[in-house]
Structures are given as C-alpha cells and as structure tokens.
C-alpha cells in the first residue's frame, strides 16, 4: 500500500471524528496489533534489501506523525467535551441545597452579649419568670409603698397574691447569692413583664440581661471597665461612653450608661432625640441592704450589677423601628437575621 494514500486516509478519518470512542477506533485501525502500520512493517522483510531501510524509515515517520495527530485530536476532543457540558449546565438556575432556619434576633443579641461576658469569665444562668414579691422587690431594697416602685409596674398572679411575673431579671441576683458564696460573676438573660400598653416602643413582655460580680474587692472602676469592654464589643471600638449618676434602689452608687449615638456619632439626630447619646444600661455598686438580705457581710464583699433591655439593643443594632415586629413573627422579618 502506498504510504501517501495512507496519509490521506488518516487525515480523512481524523477530520470526521466527533468522539473519543471514534478516536480509539482510528487508533486501533492504524496502530493496533493487526493495524495498517503493523501490516506495513510486516512487508519489510519481503522487500528488496536496498529499499528496506528507506521504507522502514518512512513507516516510522508515518507512525510518529500519526501519534502526534492522534494526540492533538484527543486534546481537541477533550476540550470540546467540556464545552458541551458547559452548555447543558444553566448556572442561572437556582442552586440546590436544603434551606436553613434563622434564630430570632433577640436570641442572637442574647448570644452575642453572653459570649462577650463569657470571655471575661462570667457564667450564664437563668431563673423562673414567676417570682416572689421578696425576690422581685423587698430583697432588692425596693420598699413596698414607695415611689421607686412606680417604674416597676407589675403583673400579679390571681391565684397567689404574693407571686408575680418578674418585672426585671434582678431577682436572679437574690436567688444566686442566696445559694452561692462569692466570688460570683453571672449574667442572666430572660423574659420580663410589665403592664405597659403595647406600642412601637413598649411591650408588656420583653427581655433583659442582668449581670453582677461579687468578690472581696470589686470597685466602681471594675464596673466601668467591664461595661466599657462590653459596649465596645457590641457597638464598636469607636464609640464614646459616659456614666451618668442615677438612682436604682438596689445599687449605690448607681449609674446609667450612654454610648455616643451609633447613627449620628454624637451630633444629634432623631434616633438619639438630638442628644447625641443613647442610653443602653443601668448599673451600680450592689447596695449593702441587698447583701444583708442574702446573708452576705457588706463589710467583706463588694460588687456591681447591671441590666440592659435586649429589645433596645436589637432595635439599635438592626435598625428596627417598631418593637412589635419582634413579636409578630412574620417569616419575612425572621428570615433577615
């Protein structure tokens, strides 16, 4: 057979080729054990001695050339195949994955705040929502018939008149201190209740996080440092803070804590009521009368306590304007967190 004719045939075979399988067919046809090249090689011994060397060289060249062509074709085919796949995947179609749920924003804030205090060595504990008058008021140095109780309007149980729905998380202070000796470093998240008519900024049920530290030498400076670390962790390192004297029956000295407005950075806007400051915490050194109620010696121990409204922080942090959204549980709201 004529070598040139074979070359043409190879070119022709390779040209029409569309698949790797067909390419394999071509490879077998020429390079197989009984392929054309083997047949050509087989004819060499029968050739005149003078032609053998030259013919042998030509067959070798043909073989090398064919191998190169097959290789090239294979690469081309492989590339074509990937291209073909890309055509069948429509990347515009939605991805396939199970849908995850969402934590309620209140839970997210509580987790974030508790994590910050855990870093400092605090333990997180909870307490019951139905409380005694003693734990909610008297033990916390809030006398029964006193104007200081006005801010703590309270739901009472019809069944037992001395029981109530806690109006703050502070009763857990009393519970923990009664059952444990110092040192203590505790945060308490939980639901609290006050008979406030529901509107954009009030809810009869809301959440607080209470915290307190008691040990031999806890100072007002410790209170400031702890709350500064907390506020900067939640609202960013750039905020400024101020501690304003205030009155809470269960702490003395007492302070309210403001941060510079997160929207206007202190210039004054509608969020901060043109004040430039946002109140976020109430705090103070635990009142000696509270220590006496739980059987601690106030000359031996000092401590600080603080409390914050979780909804307030959620509203500020997420830019929510109406507290009712938090309890409406609309999935379109919940799925944003």
């Amino acid at each position: 057979m004529d070598i040139e004719a074979i070359k043409t045939q190879i070119a022709c075979d390779l040209n029409d080729l569309k698949s790797i399988q067909a390419l394999e067919g071509v490879r077998v046809k020429y390079l197989g054990r009984k392929g054309l090249i083997a047949q050509l090689t087989g004819t060499i011994p029968s050739l005149p001695a003078a032609e053998r060397a030259s013919f042998g060289r030509q067959v070798n060249e043909l073989k090398t050339g064919l191998l190169a062509l097959l290789d090239e074709k294979q690469k081309a085919l492989a590339a074509w195949r990937e291209g073909a796949d890309a055509d069948t995947i429509d990347i515009g179609m939605p991805g396939i994955a199970p849908e995850l749920g969402h934590l309620h924003p209140i839970t997210k804030i509580i987790s974030e705040v508790c994590a910050i205090f855990r870093q400092m060595g605090f333990s997180v504990v909870e307490g019951p929502e139905i409380e005694t008058e003693f734990n909610n008021f008297t033990g916390l140095n809030i006398p029964l018939e006193h104007p200081s109780r006005d801010v703590f309007d309270t739901f009472y149980l019809a069944t037992k008149s001395t029981l109530l729905l806690r109006s703050h998380t502070s009763p857990v202070q009393i519970r923990v201190m009664k059952s444990h000796k110092p040192p203590l470093a505790i945060v308490v998240p939980g639901r609290v209740y006050r008979p406030d008519a529901v509107d954009a900024s009030h809810s009869f049920m809301f959440h607080q996080i209470e915290g307190f530290v008691v040990d031999a030498d806890i100072t007002f400076a410790d209170l400031k440092g702890t709350l500064e670390f907390f506020a900067k962790s939640v609202f960013g390192k750039d905020i400024s803070m101020r501690f304003r004297p205030h009155f809470f029956p269960f702490t003395e000295p007492s302070a309210e804590v403001d941060i510079s407005c997160i929207l206007c950075k202190g210039k004054g806007c509608s969020l901060c009521g043109r004040k430039g400051w946002l109140e976020i915490l109430g705090s103070g050194m635990i009142h000696p009368n509270v220590f006496r109620h739980v059987g601690y010696d106030p000359s031996r121990y000092t401590g600080f306590a603080f409390g914050m409204g979780v909804e307030r922080i959620a509203l500020l942090k997420y830019g929510i304007e109406d507290i009712r959204l938090l309890f409406e549980n609309d999935l379109r709201f919940l799925k944003q967190f």
Binding site: M120, D215, A221, D222, G225, F243
Partner: peptide, 9 residues
C-alpha cells in the same frame, strides 16, 4: 464618674 478609672475585675 468620668474621673474614676476603668479596670477589668
């Protein structure tokens, strides 16, 4: 209150 230092207990 602002003149009282800030410390971590």
């Amino acid at each position: 209150y602002g003149r009282i230092p800030n410390t971590i207990p």
